[in-house]
Design a protein around this nucleic acid. Sequence first.
DNA 1: TCTTGACCTTCCCATAATGGGAAGCCTTAT
DNA 2: ATAAGGCTTCCCATTATGGGAAGGTCAAGA
Lengths: 143, 143
Amino acid sequence: MNIGQASTGSGVSAKMIRYYESIGLMPAAGRTQSGYRVYSDRDVHLLRFVRRARDLGFALEDIRLLLGLWQDDARPSAAVKDIALKHIGELTRKIAELQAMKRSLQHLAEACHGDARPDCPILDDLSGLDDAAGEAGSAACCR
Amino acid sequence: MNIGQASTGSGVSAKMIRYYESIGLMPAAGRTQSGYRVYSDRDVHLLRFVRRARDLGFALEDIRLLLGLWQDDARPSAAVKDIALKHIGELTRKIAELQAMKRSLQHLAEACHGDARPDCPILDDLSGLDDAAGEAGSAACCR
DNA sequence: TCTTGACCTTCCCATAATGGGAAGCCTTAT
DNA sequence: ATAAGGCTTCCCATTATGGGAAGGTCAAGA
């Protein structure tokens, strides 16, 4: 099958399939005499694996490890779980970071009239007017 | 003051200060005869503004708008609030996305023994064995 | 005055993962 | 035979940041 079919069948764009090959995440595909890449059902299966892992937010380097374990019948499941737990940790950290931003920003936005007048607690906070008064909207209160 | 002092005083690296100048986020700094950039307290204030906005997760293009509003005494606070609300929306979306990943992955990790044996629900899920049984750990159940 | 170390300059490269697009070859159906 | 659509490679862009090299500058001490 051609790269287009492999793409449709796996949900990975042809561009990305070539890229994964170029960085050695995928084995180099076979070629027709005219140079077209040729894929098997097994390749599509592998691509789907990569796509699912991407959907779970794994970095390509982690996926490289996961693929290695997947294809190793003697893998200890602990090795897989380690990678997953590490990733969960990263997700947790990132979520907390974004939530802190959101919280600060929400306080500021609530304090902002949002009308035609120019005074704006959001800009005041960004200006560093934390020092001014004890306004509840300061981002500093949430960091 | 030199770029090093401006960096220390603002918490923005010298590298980034030059970058912000190159993309027009900062006005071009004055120069000494020998070519060193020269900064004023006002510049440091501006840099601090940028840094705080970055800390809140604003993209540089949004910060460009915020800086424009900051320096416009006739700005309507609604314009600022719009930018903030839009960003809150993006944060909310991103947080939800990461949380969905985390939830799926946590289910899978809980179902994984994490020992020396090779069988692993995480790999099973990535392999597309959703089709197999009604395992609670499937990522599909959370998407 | 000379040296030395710390600081500055510009320029190029790298990151992570993805998409856009051009120029040109291949295949297939009409 | 010709057109359409698929494939190839190659280059560029994204976002924000850092690393590092090669070379100029400044300040302080010997």
